[in-house]
Amino acid sequence: MTEMAGGCLCGAVRFTAQVHSDDAYLCHCRMCQRAIGNVSVAMVNALKAEVSWADEPSTYRSSPIATRGFCGVCGTSLTFAYDDSEKLDLLVGTFDDPSRFRPKHHFGVEHLHRNWLDTSGLPEYRVDEYQPIVDRWMKSVGKLPE
């Protein structure tokens, strides 16, 4: 078990969670696709009692059986939780170091978009090597984001 920290894009909502394994999963259901605005979302399961919030996230009742947590300032999606469960899902990308997690399965595969699963053959570009973006960041704040 490891305590890991995370939060939203703007830093208004921060959490620590007891993480018991590296297991994560990709959800492809239409509700998650619409909530996140993407073809899938990577999530890791945790016990609600083992997640501590510096500031509680805002919540949205996304269905009659579940809620989603998000930052009310920047809009970052943070959680998914069934009302009757002791567990919740934290979005992998909200952890300060998401590299620990590995996908172990897919969920909601009836809406899976296979073209987005294996993109290993596509060209790859680094942000810090794309001069128009580097110039924008340097002009605005004098450095690249982390």
Rank of each mutant, 00 (worst) to 15 (best):
Y60P: 01
F70E: 03
Y82C: 08
L112I: 12
S99T: 15
F107H: 09
F107G: 04
F101L: 09
R114G: 14
Q131C: 00
F70G: 02
T67M: 08
G108N: 08
F95Y: 02
G142T: 07
L112T: 00
V73L: 11
D83S: 06
Y60G: 03
L91P: 02
V109F: 01
L122S: 15
A81Q: 12
F107Y: 04
L88H: 03
Y130L: 05
S140L: 10
Y82R: 14
G142I: 06
S85P: 03
D55I: 04
S140Y: 08
D89S: 15
K48Y: 08
V92G: 02
H111K: 12
A54D: 08
E50Y: 01
H106S: 10
D83H: 11
H105A: 12
L122N: 08
P64N: 12
A66F: 07
T79V: 06
Y125C: 03
D89R: 05
P57F: 03
L78V: 08
P103R: 14
A66S: 11
P123R: 11
S85I: 05
K87P: 00
I65K: 10
D89W: 07
D97N: 15
H111Y: 10
N115E: 13
S52F: 05
L88G: 01
Y130I: 00
M138R: 07
W53R: 06
R114K: 11
L91T: 14
M138G: 03
G75H: 11
E50I: 07
G72R: 00
S63K: 01
F101Y: 12
S63E: 05
T79L: 03
T94I: 01
L78A: 02
D55K: 14
G121W: 09
C71M: 10
F70T: 00
Q131P: 03
E50G: 07
D84F: 07
V109M: 10
S77V: 08
H105L: 09
P98A: 02
R68N: 00
P132A: 07
K139P: 04
L91N: 04
N115Q: 12
L122Q: 13
H106G: 10
R100G: 09
D135W: 02
P64Y: 04
P57M: 04
R100D: 06
A54P: 05
S77E: 08
C74S: 09
G121I: 07
E86T: 08
N115A: 12
S63L: 06
D118E: 09
T76D: 04
C71A: 14
A66P: 00
E124P: 01
T67H: 10
T94P: 02
R100E: 08
L112R: 15
G108F: 06
R102V: 14
L122G: 11
P123W: 09
L47G: 05
C74T: 10
G142C: 09
E110D: 12
E124W: 10
T59I: 09
T59C: 05
L122H: 14
K87F: 13
H105I: 01
N115K: 12
E50M: 10
V51K: 04
G121M: 11
W53D: 06
W137D: 03
R126K: 12
V134G: 03
L117D: 14
H111R: 13
V92M: 06
Y125M: 10
